Simulated scan of single mutants.
Amino acid sequence: MENDKYSGLKKVEVVDDYLDVTFPMLVLYPTETPEKEEKIGPYLVDVSLDAKLEDERYPLVVISHGTGGTPLVYRHLARDLAKRGFIVAMPEHPFNNVKDNQLERTTKLLRSRPKNITQVIDWFDHSDSFKDHINFEDISIIGHSMGGYTAIAVTGGTPTTLPWETGNETPERIDVDVDERIKKVILFAPALGWFRNEGALEKVNVPIFIMTGERDEITPSFHAEILLNGVINREKIVHKVFENAGHFSFLSPFPPEMKVTSFPPSQDPEGFNRELFQQELAADVLSFLLS
């Protein structure tokens, strides 16, 4: 990707009035201030901390990470988008992240995750630093794995619980507020089993780019089929299957010391080049966002 600007980075806190907590969020954005290498969590990233935001309006992209994950594993994609003129929000979902995952496999999580996305957009709408720099008519969401659930739920999907998420194993429909400010959805290996019921996706009516891995054993092909068969306007969906890609191939490459078999997110099917794939992924994402 040809880059026009540098990537600025701010660390902020967002209020979650449903769980009554605040959660951290990284914001990457275009800047003219040169980058330098910074240690963000366990990773080294070239960014310009707290740099000046240029006096323009930019599209907003929210990235929703997978269950028990961290937004930092999408750092390469986020930085590429920021350098190409996007403001990128990377929230850490409360109680469903690498540091604290107590809400995993609960009904409460199904309710809270979509709310986080609306809370993020509201934060920008009230932020003195960013509100005048956001094009609120051009907001997109990228969701990986459980982030895919989040993206579909907040754009009109009606989820129903899975057996282990309720005390009596009785399916329960989850009411989710749709955020109509979101105009496009990009899904990486999405987890969509919650939308298996007939009619669950009939209100989803935004352009969707779904990317899946041929060798994904965590969210295999039936997840994509739920979406492809459930959305009424099939013409709004683009589906791309990446040859030999696994579930975690969509994450930024990990440092050599983290590439061990005991850490599945660092692993890919044999012969898969994650570093090269990230370039193709970023180009595909940018093309869809600009279309």
Rank of each mutant, 00 (worst) to 15 (best):
D216Y: 06
I232W: 00
T219L: 10
F263P: 01
D216M: 04
K236N: 14
E217F: 15
V241T: 15
N244T: 06
F248L: 10
A245C: 01
S252D: 02
S266L: 02
I237D: 04
V241A: 14
A224Q: 09
D268K: 03
V238W: 08
M258C: 01
S266I: 07
D216K: 01
L228Y: 06
V241Q: 14
H247E: 02
R234H: 12
S262Y: 12
F254W: 02
N233I: 06
P220W: 07
L251Q: 07
D216C: 08
I237H: 09
F263T: 05
A224F: 02
F263K: 05
I232G: 10
N229S: 10
M258L: 08
V260N: 10
A245I: 00
F250V: 00
P265D: 06
G230V: 09
T261K: 14
K236F: 10
F222D: 14
S266C: 05
E243F: 13
R234T: 12
K240C: 09
S252M: 07
I226M: 08
N229M: 08
D268P: 00
K236T: 13
P264D: 07
L251T: 01
V241W: 00
F248I: 05
E225T: 14
S252T: 15
F248Y: 14
S266G: 07
G246N: 04
M258T: 03
P253K: 05
R234F: 02
P264Q: 12
P265T: 10
L227M: 13
V231N: 02
I232H: 11
E257H: 14
S249G: 01
N233E: 09
H247P: 12
N229T: 12
F222S: 12
A224C: 06
F242W: 08
E243Q: 13
K240N: 09
N233D: 13
K236V: 11
F242S: 10
L228Q: 09
G246P: 06
R234Q: 13
S262D: 09
I218Y: 02
T261D: 12
S252V: 02
H223F: 03
D216A: 10
P264E: 11
E214A: 08
P265C: 07
L228W: 03
H247I: 07
P220M: 07
K236Q: 15
E235D: 15
V231H: 01
S252E: 05
F254D: 04
E225Y: 10
T261L: 08
M258F: 07
I232M: 10
F250S: 00
I232F: 09
H223W: 00
F263E: 04
H223K: 02
L227V: 04
A224K: 03
P256Q: 00
K240Q: 11
P253A: 09
E243N: 09
I226Q: 03
H239D: 11
S221V: 14
P265Q: 06
E235I: 08
H223N: 15
H239K: 10
E217Y: 15
F248R: 04
Q267Y: 04
I226H: 07
N233M: 05
G230R: 01
E214V: 09
